[in-house]
Design a binder for these strands. Structure first.
Lengths: 227, 227
DNA sequence: AGCGCCTGTTAAAAAAGGTTAAAAGCCGAT
DNA sequence: ATCGGCTTTTAACCTTTTTTAACAGGCGCT
């Protein structure tokens, strides 16, 4: 999970940012000032801090210093209206990872967040790629599927498709979307190829009665896991 | 050792930057264009790249993409005269760590370099080209691979390929990118040659069950290290 | 029911990669 | 300059993975 501490005193901007980040798969926690921000920081674990500088009660620099004093590594990005060079320098002295000046585009913010996170959490990719489905354990990174009887090695395409199904467990995985994701484009032959792979995956899962790959005609496929 | 790849086509600015960085304890290597930059990148190990964007022969973005294709982690900071937002966004998409607009103060540049390196360096024990993978210790500079049972000497090509795999540990190393980096170009015979070397490396790693070189069909190879 | 379109299944073709060994290239020692 | 040993490339043959093909059903619609 990508929990982000968002401290911004402008309620409008704060709300917009929080919603946008949520939309993009993050879990933003919004605070209205530095004091609130600090107590929130203490109460939970975050992966990244997004701090406004000018705020009532406690400014962003002060908060950042307090956070830095206990966590030398957590990424901090400052949001600022000012373009004062001294401010920028001050921020980097505290140990900012980036600095973004208002007004900024949402897209740019997202890119900066991702740039910072990518560097920071290389291990994260591993965690999200092990799926427990039914009695099976699917490790995407290793391209393996473990069951009680043993471990089988999946091919790259099999693993890619199974991952998409797992990520959409109990939801419909759209054919066209899957094709574009794995094969690059939705063409007739790629579609037939995917059907072949669906058959292979069904074969692997058929020993587990809890699991089933349903066809949603004209829509896609759905990996069902039931108790 | 903080070796910095500095690619800047303006000889005056390049010289000034190089001298300043040297003064601050870094070891800058100055190149005048992107092509020179790439061949320099191939020939040595750097901790950080400082790239101008507009350059003759090969621009900074192109160079950055080539570097990123084989090293997902090395910090890249762009130097630019333009303040175009699209450029900024393009840079972050490639995976820039920071962006600094000319004219900038030396102090600000230094702060940004340090901000980026601070986050980066603790995990980067491989900066001296010694990688601990599984139960093995791979020393690129000495071209040796130590295990409990003894030390073997690697050939130059073996070491180059293993280093790329280590730098991309648990990530896919793109075939074509690796070929361009080590063999100079992606041709049929070079590709077959690389396959031969992959086989050799697999032989060296096969005693360590924590390590595995996976084939990502049509993509490349992935060195997996699991607990 | 009948038709068109989508999906299932299986097998063969094609592409990519694995393995091994011989040929070629490189480099220092004589 | 030539030899011998090591590294790298080329080659031949093999295996695995992916795509294509052909045919068989199934679904929804009229």
């Amino acid at each position: 999970m990508n929990r982000i501490l968002l401290v911004e005193d402008d309620p409008n901007l704060g709300q917009v940012l929080a919603e946008y980040l949520q939309l993009k798969g993050f879990e933003p926690v919004l605070c209205g000032d530095g004091e609130e921000g600090l107590s929130m920081y203490k109460s939970r674990t975050f992966e990244l801090c997004l701090l406004d500088i000018m705020m009532p009660k406690k400014d962003g620099f002060t908060l950042a210093r307090e956070i830095r004093s206990v966590d030398k590594k957590i990424p901090i990005i400052f949001l600022t209206a000012k373009t004062l060079k001294e401010d920028t320098i001050e921020g980097f002295k505290i140990g900012a990872d980036d600095y973004i000046t208002k007004p900024f585009s949402m897209e740019e913010l997202l890119l900066r967040i991702n740039a910072v996170l990518r560097r920071y959490s290389p291990a994260r990719s591993d965690k999200d790629n092990v799926f427990k489905i039914g009695k099976l354990i699917f490790d995407f990174n290793n391209q393996t599927l473990k069951s009680e009887t043993g471990e089988i090695r999946l091919t790259t395409k099999e693993a890619n498709l199974l991952r998409l199904l797992c990520q959409n467990k109990n939801l419909t995985l759209n054919r066209s979307a899957a094709l574009k994701m794995i094969w690059g484009d939705d063409s007739y032959f790629n579609a037939r190829s995917m059907d072949v792979y669906i058959a292979k995956l069904r074969k692997y899962l058929k020993n587990d009665d809890h699991l089933n790959i349903l066809t949603i005609h004209g829509e896609g496929f759905k990996l069902i896991e039931r108790a």
